[in-house]
Write a protein that binds this DNA or RNA. Structure first.
Lengths: 234, 234
DNA sequence: CGCGCAATTGAGCGGGCTCAAAGCCCGTGG
DNA sequence: CCACGGGCTTTGAGCCCGCTCAATTGCGCG
């Protein structure tokens, strides 16, 4: 799970990955920051901020899907996470972002000044707590992804990814999981190649667990999907 | 599990791998918590806390080495991180820990009440900032490890691990990197098998980059080691 | 010296990668 | 309305890195 500010349900965007939602964020603690915040639009594949850019701002996704990307010298790419409406990103950076953020689809974000956020956190224990909780959730998610990357097979990663996306509410009106990102993005998120992701999806399709379309996946057998994406001991 | 209980900070006996934490500025904000804190000893392989245990306490390593461990249903294991003197762990959990912590060597830790920590953070912006910075650093480290696990080859992971350990000060009097943990621990940290870790170390030895001993590794060619553990674009 | 455990080395296999070729979707223009 | 083209996805064939299984070595300790 990622850093979702969940105090009230997000007003669902009417269209698939479209429709600008210009309402104010749904977190009381952020309200004092609204005055100096800005709403921004991005087109598909636009860069929202760059790796190693001074971390002046942080962002809240209003609509669309954002990916965070880290690059290594030789071009290898890691997609850290996919951010959906209600998710925050860039709040927990140090002086500089250590990853870039790019629009997967058309995106609308609300941009906040991190300096203002920090100083507000000094005076609002409410906000400070929210930020701590957010970090804790991010860290938990990061640990889960470490297991995914370090210890799971290709098909487990793919099934687990579908489960995660469905639980995070990336679901359309017909109950299908929305996958607005390319197979390349998914592969770079799961530490696999495009081909392996395709084969994994095809296999899940072949055995009747899911139905695959271009930008969506329909779940045919929830139980089978869940057990294909093994969980942590609890 | 032999958790000897003392009420005063202990100066542990200096043995191998028993570098003692001498106090660092970034935890100065913890001072008000010292009154109700406790110093604990653990033997090799003792469990400090369990996965899914209520996260009542957090810990500071005074001496020795601690590993955090996450298990999956079928026994697959992921070692999240190795903690050295001066490192904190368990501070950023939610209601329950989602990983266990175990002593790699003989260990002395200082245990703090998380509830007290949280309430102190409400009144001390100093501490609140420290905690936020701590989380930010943890997240950065987690992202770097994601690249390691998702996108690096076995030999890159091994070299990168050695570089990391040397930079974190796990170095003995002769400049050798101290590796108090078993090969199994290293393997489960890097998403590899024991055998692959061994072969990787042997190969680095064969080409003259390092010299391998039981619990230490001496660096013979720093440049070669650095370039074997590829960095992130900067 | 001999036992037990961890580390190392060897041989062979297989999952996921690489390289390559279709296939499909959708926009654009005739 | 269809033909064409480009980009992404899917499928196929073969290879290699890292895993599995197994044997050997090295080291600490009674």
């Amino acid at each position: 799970m990622s850093a979702t500010l969940a105090t009230e349900p997000v007003a669902p965007s009417p269209g698939p990955h479209a429709a600008t939602w210009t309402g104010s964020p749904h977190v009381a603690a952020f309200r004092p920051l609204e005055r100096q915040a800005t709403t921004l639009d991005f087109e598909r594949n636009d860069e929202i901020f760059a790796q190693d850019e001074p971390a002046q701002y942080c962002y809240l996704v209003l609509s669309g899907c954002v990916r965070t990307v880290t690059l290594i010298e030789d071009g290898r790419r890691q997609v850290g996470e996919f951010l959906l409406p209600g998710d925050l990103f860039g709040c927990d950076s140090l002086a500089e972002h250590d990853f870039s953020a790019e629009a997967v689809t058309q995106v609308v974000v609300r941009r906040y000044c991190r300096r203002a956020l920090e100083s507000l956190a000094d005076s609002s224990r409410e906000l400070a707590r929210t930020l701590r909780e957010l970090s804790a959730n991010q860290l938990r998610a990061a640990r889960e992804r470490m297991i995914m990357l370090g210890r799971k097979t290709a098909s487990e990663r793919i099934a687990g990814f579908l489960v995660e996306m469905s639980e995070r509410g990336a679901v359309d009106a017909h109950g299908r999981i929305e996958l607005p990102m390319s197979r390349t993005d998914v592969a770079d998120h799961l530490g696999l190649t495009i081909e392996t992701v395709c084969r994994g999806l095809s296999e899940l399709h072949r055995v009747g667990t899911i139905a695959v379309n271009r930008g969506t996946v329909a779940i045919r057998n929830r139980r089978a999907l869940d057990s294909a994406g093994i969980k942590i001991v609890h």
